[in-house]
Design a protein around this nucleic acid. Sequence first.
RNA 1: GGUCCCGUGGUGCAGUUUGGAGUGCACGCCGGCCUGUCAAGCCGGAGGUCGCGGGUUCAAAUCCCGUCGGGACCGCCA
Length: 581
Amino acid sequence: MTQAAGLRTHYNGDLRTDHVGQQVSVVGWVAKRREHGEHLAFVDLRDHTGVVQCVVPGSVDVRSEYVVRITGTVKNRLEGTVNTKLATGEIEVQDCEVEVLSVAEPPPFPMDGRADDVDEMVRLRYRYLDLRRERMQRNLRVRAKVNSAIRRAMEDQGFIEVETPMLMPSTPEGAREFLVPSRQSPGDFYALPQSPQLYKQLLMVGGTDRYFQIARCLRDEDLRADRQYEFMQLDAEASFVTQDDVLAFISEAVMAAAEAVTGERPPEIEQITWHDAMDRYGIDKPDLRFGMELVELTPIFADTGFNAFKAPSIKGIKVDGAAADYGRNKLDGLTDRAKSLGAKGLVWMKVEDGGVLTSPVAKFLSEAEQAGLVAAFGAEAGDLLLIVADEWHQTCEVLGTLRNDVGRPPVHEGPYRYVWVIDFPMFVGQDDEGNPKPGHHPFTHPHPEDMDKLESDPMAVRSLAYDLVLNGWELGSGSIRIHEPELQSRIFRLLGISQEEADKRFGFFLTPFRYGAPPHGGFAFGIDRLTAILAGEENIREVIAFPKPQSGTDPMTDAPTAVDPAQLADLGLRLLPKKSS
RNA sequence: GGUCCCGUGGUGCAGUUUGGAGUGCACGCCGGCCUGUCAAGCCGGAGGUCGCGGGUUCAAAUCCCGUCGGGACCGCCA
């Protein structure tokens, strides 16, 4: 409870029967006025702590959202007028005098739960009003608790907070950057940090040992429910540590944040390898809140006569009791979805009594194969089976997406299921020139057990990279970094990056490693995402004071805006004509 | 760049399938009444370029084309 001062003696939501008899002054916004003729009026007064009812012995000229100071005496409510919906509902402030501090126009939407249904653009245009609402104030305070708990947890583990520059050189790997033109060096640009990645590694070279920062990151990529242009990360890096050390540090910060919000410390965060995550859940950010794991079917069809199942990997998922819920339309929808994900097709089967399978393709399967399916799935009458046959990765990915489509609850619904995904592949896919692409980033240390496969079988090499996942959302990722210049050169060679090119692109970053770099590793996770889930929100915009909609424009400030030609001239910039189609 | 959904007084909706006068509901707003209400109650009232543009039609919120805005997702986010 905060000590009240200034114009008020108490916060509205704090008043209880303990205060009965006290003369109090409370301030805030008029949530509601109810007049009963010239002798009695009620004013519900709201601040961020709650609402208290004030009784005025006469009429009172206030409207919704007027800012007022009310002075009166706390009394028990009359018999039968207690309001159990209010925390302050056993008392009221009586014999009130009302002093108007600010008048207000009628707000465009109500400052209560009904505004949850209002068009988000309207809420964002009047965000300063939206923020008055209990939900928004709660979310801001959840966020503050998360930040505070993280900071404390990191400091308790010997990390120090260091700020890094917002204006840095462009390093056009990964996410698209926001650029900032330089006035003193016309035609040149800074970039805003996608993350403090490079600086924090240099802090390790600089002997900082354990660094963290609650860092703002900026990425000029399309916005989503879980993505804003600018977002906050707990960014951390430590020297002379193993992967397990890093996981422990970050687990501690996340669990401390969760405990600060929910009052309950999560159990130790389990781990799963990337391969197992893909194999069992078909995705590298598995949602462990529900089962429906991918079932291995490949051996059943080793000698099949069904052409569609002559594939390297056949897997399926079982949707319990869903056969009756999925008519032809929905099944066609799932098939289209599978195809749009790159599958050649989707086989569905409905399980009838006695293990009989109903499916357009059942007639192509032998009795042994059908029996094998029922056994492998543990299928019972009424279940729906969805089966994909393809390359292993493709099979897993398609089924993983269908599993989420069919079974995944909203992200904010409990329970909280954290999981570390470890042993990510070092390389993922190929670039246009046929070189392997880094799965994490080009400074990630290969898994020590796979060093001998770097050149001979690069796609089989694991890395010391790891992700933290909560309820199917990727909270963040990290890795043990390469600290040996020779190994770094070897990785660049594999990626098809020449030494000259590497020096040009990352010179300022690579040179320091020639002067004695400690082994180090780190992590960064998204505070917006963690906060949203802990606050019970499924969109990070709800836990950001002033977010932007998908267009990236701000309906409140109209940013981005055109600027004065003189400003452009100062920067040595001239605009091209706008594209017209 | 793509797919799908949405756009009707200040707010939330119905009306669109099957074209027929801006018709309706709830909240809010304005005025009146009301001495125990509490997202009060009763009476009265104001408030609309049906996102915008074009087309079809005797007639368009409704059908067609385009466009703008918003949302979810794919691509993208090392």
